[in-house]
Nucleic acid binder design. Structure first.
Lengths: 256, 256
DNA sequence: TTTGACCCTTACCTAACGTCATACCATAAG
DNA sequence: CTTATGGTATGACGTTAGGTAAGGGTCAAA
């Protein structure tokens, strides 16, 4: 039977001797035998167990939980993995938020200010903007609008300009064909392009699935803020409505 | 001048009194004055400083670094934020990997095995499969194929079936119109649908941008593995080529 | 027998506080 | 004036997962 000394096992498994001492002390991994000189000797079983320990450690499980998992074979591993996964997902979300804040702060420091509420609606009078928002909220719900605005406010002015110019062409093509049928295939294709284009600016928040609800919300915002749907400098309220409708249609068609 | 007791400040800032004691001890935030009974009294300046501390703490900065930042106004904050952001991004990536492993493990435990290399090509003889792979690699490069295969192997058999059946319709529609023009608008629309549909199964790895190269690689895989482009049970090699071409065209058209 | 590599235990150190334990202070009610 | 209540202070220990010595024993080869 193969026997490993502390150093031997530590070399194979890539952990420090101190770690083995520690695992021994807390009862997570005890050596197969102790020599008369109190040397620790590990066998194949211990190597195997150590590797399992390291697997869970990779997943950031605390040692106590690993102990529970390995000691009790009736332990509900699936549930443990599931809840641990949820915790990790939350952590990821938190980090996303932090990254967002860091970026915002850096841009602030660099003098590239974020878009403010006022600037978002600066092409309207206060009353017009308020009216627009109210209408939008009534039709599409408060959450959709909020999400869209939050999304836009995360952008810098430069990013906003880039977004607008990138989508200007798409909008123009859409505008030209917007009077034909309610939603032709041509329109659908352009909307698909628009969706994909928009996604590039969507913040990643851990969930990778397309957020169709948000996309519909963006359409609502187009109605509320006609600045985005200006064609060659003049507002096109009907086009905004058309666009929003087409976006909603597209989103719905993608929801199976 | 406003003065706050320890509890008062802790209430306003939402931290524990113990935290204030600790910050005092490590010299991060000392009270403005101490009464004869050694009570800590904080002023407005301290409240302000505490709020700055909490801002950086939110971003997971260690207290020592916060101390350095706040003590030395010449501290290169931008760089600090940048490097901290990078560290956070790395953390996020690690978590993504962990989540992936967890998911894989859970599926394994549930008995839904991953797809093996063999199963991926099980509708061909070994020689055919090898020939297909070779051809594909020659035409599209090894990386594209590897990535696509890795992507498919991450799926369970059930997920693969779901993917196939979800896309069957799209494929059928595409097949019907595949003989018309090289790439009509109709085709483009279906490809856009296909792309969006595929994205749902793409693993999230932190980078949220569409991976057009991978998408082209998937097209290459369709040529290599004709199982995916069977229409009503019979292989359609020409269709696979058409589809791959259309996908590449679509991807290229999206790359600005 | 010496040397060098390995082994042991004990104990202090890390970050950012939470949680007692013990004793002191302040204010209002009885 | 005393007491009840509640705020305050310091000090010490616990937490995670080991790192880093310190001081001393063991083993194999030269």
């Amino acid at each position: 039977m193969q026997k490993y000394t502390a150093k031997g096992l530590s070399n194979i498994a890539g952990v420090s001797v101190r770690t083995l001492h520690y695992y021994d002390k807390i009862g997570l991994l005890q050596p197969a035998i102790r020599t008369t000189a109190k040397y620790r000797l590990y066998g194949e079983n211990e190597l195997l167990k150590l590797q399992q320990i390291l697997f869970f450690k990779e997943l950031d499980f605390p040692l106590k939980e690993i102990q529970a998992i390995l000691n009790d074979p009736e332990f509900d591993l699936i549930e443990a993995l599931e809840s641990h996964g949820k915790a990790l997902a939350l952590k990821q979300k938190r980090i996303s938020k932090m990254l967002n804040t860091i970026e915002k702060t850096m841009l602030n420091l660099k003098g590239k200010k974020m878009i403010t509420e006022d600037e978002l609606y600066d092409c309207f009078t206060k009353e017009e903007a308020t009216k627009n928002r109210k209408e939008t909220v009534e039709k599409y719900g408060a959450k959709a609008l909020e999400k869209s605005e939050a999304y836009l406010k995360k952008l810098t002015k430069e990013q906003l300009e880039a977004l607008k110019s990138e989508q200007k062409e798409i909008f123009k093509r859409l505008f030209e064909i917007s009077d034909r049928a309610p939603v032709t295939q041509e329109v659908q294709l352009e909307i698909a392009r628009h969706y994909i284009n928009t996604r590039k600016f969507w913040g990643t928040d851990g969930s990778s699935n397309p957020q169709w609800r948000d996309y519909k919300g963006l359409g609502a915002l187009y109605i509320a803020d006609k600045r985005f749907t200006q064609i060659d400098g003049t507002a096109q309220p009907d086009f905004a409505k058309f666009l929003s409708k087409a976006m909603a249609h597209f989103a719905n068609s993608q929801l199976k």
